[in-house]
Amino acid sequence: MTARGARAVREVSHYLGNTPAVCRTSYIDPKVFELFEQGVTVAPVLTRLGEHGEFGRPATQGAVEAAVLDLLDGSGG
């Protein structure tokens, strides 16, 4: 795992109140790391949300979650 990946795991673990090891094995699909290493992320969805001033509002959670699921099933983001 890259240093950026390790940092992301530490940040997620902080928000979830678990150790990085628990987050990595129980909450984060390993495919997320594989795709990240290939440069595939949900960044385009986050950018679109930000363009409309929507990012950060509670209603955007569904859009971000849908983008992650699309990323994992290979249908895009």
Rank of each mutant, 00 (worst) to 15 (best):
K31L: 08
A43I: 01
Y15E: 12
L35H: 10
D73S: 03
V64P: 08
A6V: 07
G74M: 11
A67I: 01
T2G: 01
A43N: 04
P30Q: 15
P30N: 11
R10G: 01
V32Q: 13
G74P: 08
Y15D: 08
C23D: 14
H14A: 05
C23P: 05
G62A: 12
G56M: 07
T19K: 14
E11M: 03
R4V: 04
G53L: 10
D29R: 14
G62Q: 14
L71N: 06
E37Y: 14
A43Q: 09
T2V: 00
G50T: 07
P58Q: 14
L49M: 09
T47Y: 15
H14F: 13
I28A: 03
P30I: 10
Q38Y: 04
R10Q: 02
V40N: 13
E34F: 07
T25N: 11
A59F: 04
E11V: 00
T25K: 12
T41R: 10
R57T: 01
G39R: 14
I28G: 09
V9G: 05
P30M: 08
M1W: 13
A8C: 11
F36M: 08
I28Q: 08
D70A: 06
K31H: 08
R24D: 13
T19P: 01
G74L: 13
T2C: 05
S26T: 09
P30W: 15
L16P: 00
M1H: 02
V68A: 04
T19Q: 13
E54Y: 08
K31F: 04
R7Y: 05
K31Y: 00
M1I: 04
G53Q: 12
V68N: 03
L72Q: 09
V68Y: 03
R4N: 07
A67K: 06
T47N: 15
A8V: 01
E34L: 06
V45W: 06
G39M: 05
E54T: 02
G39D: 12
G5N: 07
C23Y: 11
